[in-house]
Design a binder for these strands. Structure first.
Lengths: 192, 192
DNA sequence: TCGAAAAACTAACGGTATTAGTTTATAATA
DNA sequence: TATTATAAACTAATACCGTTAGTTTTTCGA
């Protein structure tokens, strides 16, 4: 009955760890509380509901991803930067597949904090695209395009919708290069 | 206690209807059996588990989508055909948002029947891309690219990750046109 | 030192999918 | 047509799940 020094952050981190190990679908508050050495009901002193917890885990995933994506990205051009972001995005998703799932599995209701964290990740794309020469409106369009492509690829691959005949890495490179090439063709030359 | 003439197909269709009405997350076997005028346990004479049922619903979604996508697609060029498929894909997903979710929410284990139905939908893309002049390998690559883009866009939009400042329809057109333009630039002229 | 607040607990509720065992209705067979 | 076997309904129970209410214990601040 001694206090365990629990708080929201520790719970969220332990939950993320548990999800990473056992999978998103196998996750339960019961197993989480077991691991924290506490009864399930005690969690509710720190969290208000499972869906709120899930949202917090999604935010954690965004933060970790952002940290991994934008550390030491020294590239020759904005196009190169874009390429490395795209490669890093998938790298993170493949290294943390179950954690990545939480990002989009949030119930649409009340996930505004998560959406905000997602926006942070997105906004950091904008300067890169601006440096490529895109207009304000096209920055939005292209940002949505490449995010859709990356996320869709990861989701479909993970779900098993790509056959095994052709290497997925190769397809991903094809996709990203296709999008960047279209950027070069439309908006500028080689040296951005 | 009189027999209700129930079978797997009727259950799957009723489940799809229920999901369309109440949402994927609100779905339960209890409400499904209520609607069918039967006790929940009785469903197990026709289905083996919820996840199998979910997989069957996903297959139904694929079939309906395929039917809607490929009826009366009379286009001037293969590029036009591709464009209309892309627009129709999103149209279906927006008209049947909850049903669309079932496609990808299937547990990866044992969903081989569903994967096969998905492959059918994919394979019907191949002749179009072949007519555009793509090599066998690039057909796979580009097919994965556009499927990723379409699916990712729909998922991110539905989850609320696109702001409301810029119209999503416009972004979707931008995305599809960008991909088709890249196809024209790489593989051929105007008249395919 | 005492009182209040926070954090643990126990116990219970309503919900879920699922299984086992039983009865009934239909279909096939003799 | 009568009988039997099979399939489809049922009842009842299990083991989870998230969540809430109410209680006890610990800790911290006045």
């Amino acid at each position: 009955m001694a206090r365990k020094g629990l708080n929201t952050d520790r719970i969220v981190e332990a939950a993320a760890e548990l999800i990473a190990e056992k999978g998103f679908d196998q996750f339960s508050l019961r197993e989480l509380s077991d691991r924290l050495g506490v009864k399930t009901a005690s969690l509710y002193n720190h969290i208000s509901s499972l869906s709120e917890l899930t949202s917090n885990i999604g935010q954690l995933a965004f933060e970790r991803m952002a940290r991994q994506l934008y550390n030491g990205t020294e590239c020759k051009s904005s196009f190169d930067t874009l390429y490395h972001i795209a490669i890093g995005y998938r790298k993170f998703a493949k290294e943390n597949p179950e954690l990545y799932k939480t990002i989009v599995k949030i119930p649409s209701t009340g996930g505004s904090d998560l959406i905000e964290k997602g926006q942070n990740l997105v906004h950091s794309l904008y300067p890169v695209l601006e440096a490529c020469g895109l207009s304000e409106r096209d920055i939005i369009h292209f940002s949505r395009t490449i995010r859709s492509a990356m996320h869709g690829f990861i989701t479909l691959e993970e779900a098993g919708f790509f056959g095994t005949m052709v290497d997925a890495d190769e397809s991903y490179s094809y996709m990203v290069e296709t999008l960047i090439r279209s950027l070069k063709n439309e908006y500028g030359g080689e040296d951005r």
